[in-house]
């Protein structure tokens, strides 16, 4: 418990947070990595998931690949890519994207599928084109589940981005591994607490967005 107190004392000192390798800069880097990895994953997984949900084809493939990727250890992918491309940001980004894509994909296709088929038929009967059905019916109505997928991906990435520092990138993993190597337990704990706080805050934020989307989509009907 002593270490915990020391970590807390470290966290309430201004010195800890300032400077180019301070906790503030590291937390900012960490957030940037998360946004970048989830952003790229969304660019891949959102169109793919919508296609699966809209056309109802390739679902088995999507389910199967999601399950298979879940078994893939992120640390293994990270070190493997790290050995190929060298130290830096590339390896963690590849590993984090592989981690995030399945969650967003699963959320997106289940979101698009969750729309009552009668509603889709009604939209078609009204003369809506495929694009209109997708953008005006399936995406808005499936939005809570789609956001849920992104929320899960953000959570996974924010925690796993710690490992980026293992292959020479920055983020909150940098003070963590420094603390681990130098047996500086307060520093180790402080970095851990900051990332836990970041994860919980992001989760609460996304939870709020998800609830708002759910309320809006239930709408005036």
């Amino acid at each position: 418990m002593n270490h915990l107190l020391e970590a807390w004392e470290l966290l309430i000192q201004a010195d800890t947070w300032t400077g180019p390798t301070g906790m503030g800069a590291r937390a900012w880097e960490h957030l940037l990595y998360t946004v970048l990895a989830v952003g790229v994953s969304a660019l891949i997984a959102l169109p793919a998931g919508l296609a699966v949900g809209h056309f109802g084809r390739g679902r088995n493939l999507a389910v199967l690949s999601t399950g298979a990727v879940r078994a893939l250890p992120t640390l293994g992918v990270l070190t493997l890519v790290g050995l190929v491309v060298g130290v830096g940001l590339m390896a963690p980004m590849v590993a984090l994207i592989i981690l995030a894509v399945p969650s967003i994909l699963a959320g997106t296709y289940s979101g698009a599928e969750s729309v009552d088929p009668r509603v889709v038929d009604a939209a078609r009967a009204q003369g809506m084109s495929r694009w209109q059905i997708l953008f005006a019916v399936q995406i808005p109505l499936g939005l809570p589940l789609i956001i849920g997928g992104i929320r899960l991906a953000v959570l996974q990435v924010v925690g796993t981005a710690m490992l980026a520092a293992y292959v020479g990138a920055g983020g909150l993993g940098a003070p963590l591994f420094l603390g681990l190597r130098t047996y500086d337990y307060p520093l180790l704990l402080a970095a851990s607490l900051v990332v836990i706080a970041l994860a919980v805050l992001l989760d609460i934020a996304f939870g709020t967005v998800q609830r708002t989307a759910r309320r809006l989509m239930r709408g005036p009907a």
């Binding site: 924010v158 994860a199 919980v200 989760d203």
Partner: peptide, 15 residues
């Protein structure tokens, strides 16, 4: 608990 990142939990728990 799932929101708590794995590596930090491995570190905080022993304390």
């Amino acid at each position: 608990l799932y929101a708590v990142p794995s590596l930090p939990l491995f570190i905080v728990l022993p304390i």
